[in-house]
Computed example of a mutant assay.
Amino acid sequence: MERENRTVVIEFIFQRFTSLPQLQILLFLVFLLSYLVILMGNLLIILLIKLNPSLHTPMYFFLLNLSFLEVCYTSSVVPQLLAHLLVEQKTITVVGCAAQMYVFTILGLTECCLLAAMAYDRYIAICNPLHYRTIMSGRVCAQLVAASWTIGILVEVVQITWIFSLPFCGSNRIHHFFCDIPPVVKMACTDTSKNEIVVLTVSVLFIMGPFLLITVSYICIISTILKLPSAEGRSKAFSTCSSHLMVVTLFYGTALFTYLRPKSISTPESDQMISLMYIVVTPVLNPIIYTLRNKKVKGAFRKTIEKSHTTTLGDGS
Rank of each mutant, 00 (worst) to 15 (best):
I135N: 04
F177R: 02
S171F: 02
F206G: 09
V30T: 08
I225G: 01
C220K: 06
L32W: 08
H84M: 09
L69S: 12
Q22V: 05
I13R: 15
L260Y: 12
R122T: 00
S223R: 13
L213W: 06
G316R: 11
D180K: 05
I163D: 01
T310Y: 07
K263F: 04
V248H: 07
C97R: 04
T150A: 14
S230G: 03
C179P: 04
D191M: 00
T201F: 03
R173E: 10
P129T: 01
T74W: 08
S54I: 11
S235N: 10
Q272N: 01
Y252R: 07
M246N: 08
K303Y: 00
Q89H: 08
V281C: 09
A237G: 05
T192I: 06
L228I: 09
T215F: 15
E4Q: 10
V248S: 13
P53K: 14
T291F: 12
M246F: 06
T110H: 15
M118V: 01
S19F: 04
R139A: 02
I124R: 04
E232H: 06
C113F: 09
I25K: 14
P58E: 02
V247L: 05
L205N: 08
C220F: 12
V103L: 09
L44S: 15
R302I: 12
G108V: 13
M187V: 02
L226G: 04
I151A: 05
R302Q: 10
L226I: 11
K303I: 07
N195S: 02
L44Q: 15
L260H: 12
V198I: 04
D191Q: 07
L85A: 11
V198E: 01
A99N: 15
N294P: 03
T224F: 07
I221E: 09
G170D: 05
N286F: 06
T224S: 13
L64R: 14
